[in-house]
Amino acid sequence: MSPPAVHVALSEGRSYAVHFEPLATAPMHLREAGVTGPRALVVTDETVGPLWLDALADALRADGWQVEATAVPAGEGSKSLGQLGALHDWALALGIDRATPVLALGGGVVGDLAGFAAATLLRGLPLVHLPTTTIAQVDSAIGGKTGINHATGKNLVGAFHQPLLVLADPATLGTLPDRAFQSGLAEAVKHALISDPALADRLDREWDALVGRDPDVVASVVRDAAAVKAAVVEADELEAGERAVLNFGHTFGHALEREAGYGTLTHGEAVAFGMRAALHLSASLRQGAVADGLGPFQAADRLVARVAPAPPALDPDRLTEAMATDKKRTAQGLRFVVLDTVGEPRLADDVPPAMVEAAWRFALESGA
Rank of each mutant, 00 (worst) to 15 (best):
P4E: 14
A5I: 00
V6A: 06
A9N: 13
S11I: 00
S11T: 14
S11F: 01
S11G: 14
R14Q: 15
R14S: 08
S15L: 04
A17S: 15
V18D: 01
E21L: 14
M28G: 04
E32M: 10
G37W: 10
V42Y: 08
V42P: 05
P50R: 13
L51T: 07
D54R: 15
A55R: 15
D58Y: 00
L60Q: 10
R61Q: 14
R61P: 00
W65C: 00
A71N: 02
P73L: 03
P73Q: 07
L81W: 13
G85K: 04
H88G: 09
D89A: 15
A93E: 15
L94V: 01
I96P: 06
G107C: 08
G108A: 02
G111D: 05
D112Q: 10
G115Y: 06
F116C: 01
F116D: 03
A119P: 03
R123L: 08
R123N: 04
G124Q: 02
L125Q: 08
L127D: 01
T134E: 01
S140D: 04
S140P: 05
I142Y: 10
I142C: 07
K145D: 11
G147C: 05
G147V: 10
I148Q: 09
G158K: 07
Q162I: 02
P163H: 05
L164G: 09
P170T: 06
A171H: 11
L173P: 07
Q182N: 03
A186N: 06
V189C: 11
V189Q: 06
K190A: 12
H191M: 05
L193I: 05
S195K: 10
S195P: 00
A200G: 02
A200K: 07
E206C: 13
D208N: 14
L210A: 06
G212E: 12
R213I: 03
P215M: 04
V217H: 02
V218T: 13
V221R: 09
D224L: 07
A227Q: 12
A231I: 00
D236Q: 04
G241D: 15
E242G: 01
A244R: 15
F248Q: 06
G249Y: 09
T251R: 07
G253R: 08
E257H: 11
E257I: 10
E259G: 00
E259R: 15
G263N: 09
H267E: 06
H267R: 10
V271R: 09
A272D: 01
A272F: 06
A272P: 05
L279F: 02
H280N: 08
L281E: 12
S284L: 06
V290N: 02
L294Q: 11
G295P: 03
P296L: 09
P296Y: 05
F297R: 06
P311W: 10
L314D: 05
D315N: 15
D315H: 09
P316V: 08
R318G: 03
R318W: 00
L319V: 11
E321Y: 02
E321K: 14
A322C: 13
A322Y: 11
A324S: 14
A324I: 11
T325H: 14
K327F: 07
K327E: 08
K328P: 09
T330G: 09
R335E: 14
R335F: 01
V337N: 08
L339E: 11
T341K: 14
T341A: 15
V342K: 12
E344M: 13
R346S: 14
P352I: 11
P353Q: 13
M355S: 07
M355W: 13
V356E: 10
A358I: 09
A358R: 04
A358Y: 08
W360S: 02
A363P: 06
G367D: 13
